[in-house]
Structures are given as structure tokens and as C-alpha cells.
Design a protein around this nucleic acid. Sequence first.
DNA 1: TTTTGACTTGTCAAATTATGGTAAATGTAA
DNA 2: TTACATTTACCATAATTTGACAAGTCAAAA
Lengths: 97, 97
Amino acid sequence: MGTQLGNRIKELRSQQKLLQRQVAALLEMDTPLYSKIERGERIPKKETVVKLAKILKSDKEALLTVWLADQVYNVVKNETYAGEALKSVSKKIKERK
Amino acid sequence: MGTQLGNRIKELRSQQKLLQRQVAALLEMDTPLYSKIERGERIPKKETVVKLAKILKSDKEALLTVWLADQVYNVVKNETYAGEALKSVSKKIKERK
DNA sequence: TTTTGACTTGTCAAATTATGGTAAATGTAA
DNA sequence: TTACATTTACCATAATTTGACAAGTCAAAA
């Protein structure tokens, strides 16, 4: 399958009428690697997501959120107790200040 | 620091009056490694958690849930948008059947 | 149908991180 | 101190991740 981030940046790239090759160049990576990110075969670094937000004129917070969600999903996707675990982490997170 | 799983198994082990050395032997690992798991310096494999549930006469589901929560927490702990990301993953998880 | 350009696939070496162990240090109770 | 439980420090290896390159597919243009 794909990732939320991959789907989103592909959509944004189309809207901006940019080629993978062009975005890849701005990210200073090669096209195949960028292609893999769009298809969810690779998850980019946080720093790359920040650059992508600028290149694609998108909201940084929104992109970083889906990027993080993709990573969390990877951890829990095949787990029986994913629901309970997520709930418990949400609670713990809220307690931090 | 520490992990939920580490705290829980330490508690269970004390209740059973077992030594780290004994639990480690049953898990077929050495004591320092088991010690690290209790203190949250290492996250054990899923399989190890299942064995631990038997050794410590605990509920398998409960231990696996905290084990998974520890891993999710590791991914999001320093992230600004952790709350939103967790929420989005919870939603996605509920949709799967 | 041949060519062109965008995108994808497969593979690989290098870098990074995880894992599991040994030896030594520390703590603690008798 | 002595004996034993636990922790810390370190290290070698294994597994995973990363970024790159070569070659492939595919669609549209010529």
C-alpha cells in the first residue's frame, strides 16, 4: 500500500504541475528515491518533510502530522491490541507539559 | 525514563519472588540483558513478552498492550504533533476489519 | 512503430541502529 | 568482609535503513 504522506505530496505536486525530477532536485535526492517516497516505499526524514512543505507550498504542521501518523501506523498495523495501546499513549502524551 | 512494560514485569517478578537471574534463565537470555528490559533500556521482542506472560503468570493481552504502547511512545515522544497523529491512526485502525 | 520523457523496479554498498554477550562495578544483606 | 543480586560499560555481530545507480515499464508524440 501507500502512505498518507506519499498520497498527499503526490497530490500537491500535481497541483503545482511539478515533475518528480524537479522536486527531487530541490530536495537534493535522485528521482527514484523521491518516487519511492511518493509511493510509500520509503519514509523520509523529518527534515525532508519540512523542505517538502516549502517546495509544495503546503502547511508544515499538516505534513509533519501525516508523516508521524505513517510511522505510528507502521508500528501498530498488524497488532491485535493496537487500539488499546494507542489510547494509552494518547493519555500519556496529554499528561506531559 | 523507564517503560510501562519494564515497570510491570519488575512488579510481577517481585510478587512471584523471582530473581532476575531466574527469569533470565527461563527466557534463555543473560541477566544483564533482562535487567535492561526491566529498566526500559531495551524493548524485548514480542515473542519474549509472550514468554514473560507465562513465566510471570500474567495476562498476555495486558503485557502485549503495554509493550506496544512503549514502542508507539518511542516514536512520538519528542514530537509536537503527537496528539493529532495518534488520533488519526486510531481512526484508521478502527476502519480496518 | 520508433523515440522521448516520466516514472518505477531491482539491486547494492555504506551507514546506522539493534541485539546479545562478557567483564567489571555497584549495591545490599548477612 | 563475604556472598549474591543487580547494574553499568563496552564490544562484536546482526539486522535494518539509507541513498545511489542501472535498467525497466509505460504513455504520448512524432
